[in-house]
Design a protein around this nucleic acid. Sequence first.
DNA 1: CACTATTCAGTTGTGCACAACTCAATGGCG
DNA 2: CGCCATTGAGTTGTGCACAACTGAATAGTG
Lengths: 161, 161
Amino acid sequence: MDALDTLPDEEFLRLDRQICFSLHAAARAFNGVYREALKELGLTYPQYLVMLVLWEHGELPVKGIGERLRLDSGTLSPLLKRLEAAGHVERRRSAEDERSVTVRVTAEGAALRERALGVPRRIGAATGLDLADITDLRERLTALAARLDGLDPDELRPSCG
Amino acid sequence: MDALDTLPDEEFLRLDRQICFSLHAAARAFNGVYREALKELGLTYPQYLVMLVLWEHGELPVKGIGERLRLDSGTLSPLLKRLEAAGHVERRRSAEDERSVTVRVTAEGAALRERALGVPRRIGAATGLDLADITDLRERLTALAARLDGLDPDELRPSCG
DNA sequence: CACTATTCAGTTGTGCACAACTCAATGGCG
DNA sequence: CGCCATTGAGTTGTGCACAACTGAATAGTG
């Protein structure tokens, strides 16, 4: 039994506004909190995401970063240039495959990690959620994103609505 | 009590990557799904959000839109210009207060609403969530955003907008 | 009334997301 | 081997988010 099917379109539009807004606003609010916490590190939120995966792996090709963060080269190329200009990473073309560019954390970038260690704890405190809440929310969002990313575009076309 | 307090910083950083990524990715995935669904209407996701509040209220000052969507004039001014160029809305300076600009839905903009009615149902189906799931997720995200924005949740709740 | 502070919309500049594209390197196939 | 499709990074152009600012209109205060 899906209660959604019983709602008229009008009500759907109202509900949609609430959902659209809540997700959009939550993402921006989260972004804003991180912006504040990361200000002292000189990192933006997406740059922090990139540094997090690089801190875990030491070095990765641009493609590898993109796969882990679902970002394409159009977003990553200029972002990585800025991280390199800031001295946090180094980029060099791969010897085995001249098409590929390997991104490696510099000594300065590794030192930045130490200064970043306190950030997540402060964010966690700001959310007011405990570990179970956070984990639950994370799992739901991950599942939702996975489903939406794997969607056939045709399912969103009017003929299928 | 709070399991978060027992985690070392290292573990926190790992957890943070998962949370940051999941929220960031979910927001972008949602955005992508709407982009696809809204393509035929010629609207972007933020433009759709603006049209949703305008369809509910008929006309609003720029400030009123900004309050409901937590967006400032730096974002809204160019966006509204594009909506006006597309013929969906009309902007005119208020007679009572020359500082204020009133945004009103045009006949074309109202007609667009009819074509938009099917969008939320298709999105709802795409998420694979039922009404209870959606409502629960929405409430959590709204509460989280409210806390992070440092505001009273009631002021942010769409139903009060 | 005159003066100041605030409000409102808009502009500028930076950074991110994404589509569409370029270009060189690689891999596959006949 | 030669040809062509594919891959990987980068570039260009559009739109959004946000900070910092401008300028005009209004509100508040003495």
